[in-house]
Amino acid sequence: MSEHIIAFIMGIVEGLTEYLPISSTGHLILTGHLLGFEGDRAKTFEVVIQLGSILAIVVLYWKRFFSLLDFKSLNIKKNNRQRLNLLHVFLGILPASIVGFVLHDFIKNVLFSTTVVLVALVVGAFLLIYADKKHTTVTANTLDQLSYKQALYIGLFQCLAVWPGFSRAGSTISGGLLVGASKKTAAEFSFILALPIMVGATGLDVLKNMDAITSGDITTFVIGFVTAFVVALFACIGFLKLLDKVSLSTFAYYRILLAIVFAFIIL
C-alpha cells in the first residue's frame, strides 16, 4: 500500500478520534501496526498529524482563544471564579507538561506498543464509567464558571494521558466531571487544553527526531496533517452534539470492545 494512502487513512483515524475519549494515539498505534507503518518515522508522523486536529480547534474556537488575551480577567475574586482566562489554561496544562517533558524518552521508547495501548484502553474505560456514575453535582455549566482549582484538578487528570491509549480527552473530560463540570464544559475545556499541550509535544518530538524526517517525507506528512484537520473540524462539532444524547459509558464500552478485538488480532 502506498505511503500516501496510509497517510490519508491515518489522518482520518486521527481526525475522528482526537476529541473523543477513546484515545487517538491508541487508534493510530493500532492502525499503524495493521498497516505496517511503524518505527521512529511513524511515531513522529503520528504526533505531527495530531497537530492538524488541534488546528481545527483554533478555527472553531478562535473567539475564545482571542478572549484569553484579556488580562483584566485575571483579577482574583472572592469566590475564586472568573471568566476563563490564561491562568485556567496554564493550570490545566502545567502538570501534564512537566510529566510529559520528564518522561518523554521513556514514553516514546517503552510505552508506544500495542500491548501497552490495549491495557490503557481498558483502564481508561473504567475511569470513564466511574466518572459517568459519579457525575451528579454540577458547579460549572459553562467554561466561564470553571474555578482555578477545578482547572488544576483537570490538569492533574490530564497527566494520565502520557500513557498512550489512555486518551487525553478521556482523562480530562473524566476529571472535569469528577470536579463538577458539565459534560459540555469538560469537553470544551479539554479542547482548549489540547492546543498548547499538542503544540509543545509536537515541537519537542520533531526537534528530537529531525534526523528521522527527510524531504521525501514532506508530502506524506502534509497529506496526514490536512486530512486530520478537515476530519477533526466535523468530528469536534459532532462530538458535542453526541454528548447530549449518549453517556460517557458508551465510549468506555467501545474502548473495551476495541481492546478485545485487537487483542485477538494482534496478540
Score class of each variant (00 low, 15 high):
residue 26 G to S: 13
residue 141 N to M: 04
residue 192 I to P: 02
residue 32 G to F: 05
residue 135 H to V: 00
residue 129 I to R: 00
residue 251 F to A: 03
residue 199 V to N: 03
residue 264 F to D: 03
residue 123 V to W: 03
residue 15 G to P: 12
residue 85 N to G: 07
residue 261 V to H: 07
residue 105 D to A: 10
residue 99 V to Q: 09
residue 29 I to A: 07
residue 66 F to H: 03
residue 23 S to T: 07
residue 106 F to T: 15
residue 88 H to E: 03
residue 255 R to Q: 09
residue 79 N to I: 09
residue 58 V to T: 06
residue 16 L to W: 07
residue 99 V to E: 02
residue 35 L to C: 11
residue 228 A to R: 12
residue 62 W to N: 12
residue 94 L to V: 11
residue 91 L to K: 08
residue 75 N to F: 10
residue 177 L to R: 14
residue 201 A to Y: 15
residue 183 K to A: 09
residue 221 F to A: 11
residue 48 V to M: 14
residue 66 F to M: 02
residue 172 T to S: 08
residue 168 R to V: 11
residue 25 T to K: 10
residue 140 A to H: 04
residue 214 T to I: 00
residue 194 A to T: 13
residue 177 L to E: 06
residue 133 K to T: 02
residue 104 H to V: 01
residue 31 T to I: 08
residue 126 F to P: 00
residue 69 L to C: 09
residue 95 P to E: 04
residue 124 G to M: 13
residue 50 Q to F: 13
residue 70 D to H: 13
residue 198 M to A: 14
residue 46 E to D: 15
residue 224 G to L: 04
residue 227 T to R: 12
residue 87 L to N: 03
residue 220 T to V: 14
residue 33 H to A: 15
residue 63 K to F: 10
residue 166 F to C: 11
residue 53 S to M: 05
residue 72 K to M: 05
residue 236 C to L: 14
residue 133 K to L: 07
residue 226 V to K: 13
residue 14 E to T: 09
residue 153 Y to M: 10
residue 25 T to Q: 12
residue 145 Q to V: 04
residue 217 D to Y: 07
residue 247 S to D: 13
residue 104 H to S: 09
residue 190 S to D: 06
residue 224 G to K: 09
residue 114 T to Y: 05
residue 169 A to P: 10
residue 64 R to E: 07
residue 263 A to R: 07
residue 80 N to G: 05
residue 168 R to S: 12
residue 263 A to N: 10
residue 111 L to Q: 11
residue 37 F to E: 00
residue 24 S to C: 02
residue 264 F to M: 11
residue 218 I to A: 14
residue 18 E to T: 00
residue 179 V to L: 00
residue 206 V to M: 05
residue 191 F to L: 11
residue 194 A to H: 04
residue 169 A to R: 02
residue 151 A to T: 00
residue 231 V to D: 05
residue 151 A to C: 03
residue 74 L to I: 09
residue 99 V to F: 14
residue 108 K to S: 10
residue 227 T to S: 14
residue 93 I to Q: 08
